[in-house]
Simulated assay, not measured.
Amino acid sequence: MSYLLESLTRKVDVDNLILNTIDRVLVLRFGRTSDVVCMQLDEIIAKSVRDVSKFAAIGLVDADAPEIQSYIKYFDITLIPATIFFFNAHHMKMDSGTPDHTKWIGAFHSKQDFIDVVEVIFRGAMKGKLIVTCPLPKERVPKFELLYGNI
């Protein structure tokens, strides 16, 4: 499913996408196309693209690309997939009941879960909030203890 979405391997492309996505949530999935959990997440994202297209843009970032390593370090991405959200070039944070509010770790359980999270981030951003509360019940939020691919 990754072939349906924009894949980014250069820092300048990620920078431009962050800076030029205006009045929409930018969803950046950091991961690998060969990772099973990334493939599950990519399938959910690909199925959701049309539903979120009015309020979100999506990019897949290759975590192994040499130019992307500055983002990997900056956002402290140690587990993949990691999904980071932006709105008007501002990093959006989400309280999902996990220790890390800066990113979503792992795949979503369903297409609707992904859409719900992106929509809540968009509504919060439109109200000027930089941190929002996750709309999903705790049992649908991935646990850090689960084995996801390490960087």
Rank of each mutant, 00 (worst) to 15 (best):
I44L: 05
I44A: 06
A46N: 08
S48H: 06
V49G: 06
V49N: 06
D51K: 11
D51L: 14
D51Y: 09
S53A: 13
F55C: 11
A56W: 07
A57N: 14
L60S: 08
L60N: 09
V61A: 00
V61Y: 01
V61P: 01
D62W: 03
D62L: 06
A63H: 01
A63K: 03
D64A: 15
A65R: 04
A65C: 07
Q69C: 08
Q69E: 12
I72R: 05
I72W: 02
K73V: 13
K73G: 10
K73Y: 09
F75D: 11
L79F: 07
I80T: 05
P81D: 01
P81Y: 05
I84A: 05
F86Q: 03
F86V: 13
F87W: 04
N88Q: 06
H90K: 13
H91P: 03
H91V: 07
H91K: 07
K93D: 00
M94C: 04
M94H: 00
S96Q: 10
P99I: 12
H101M: 15
H101F: 14
K103D: 12
K103S: 12
K103P: 10
W104H: 08
W104I: 03
W104Y: 09
I105W: 00
A107K: 04
F108A: 00
H109K: 15
S110L: 14
K111P: 11
Q112G: 07
Q112D: 13
D113F: 02
F114C: 07
I115W: 07
D116N: 10
D116P: 00
V117C: 02
E119L: 13
E119G: 13
I121P: 02
F122S: 07
R123F: 14
G124W: 03
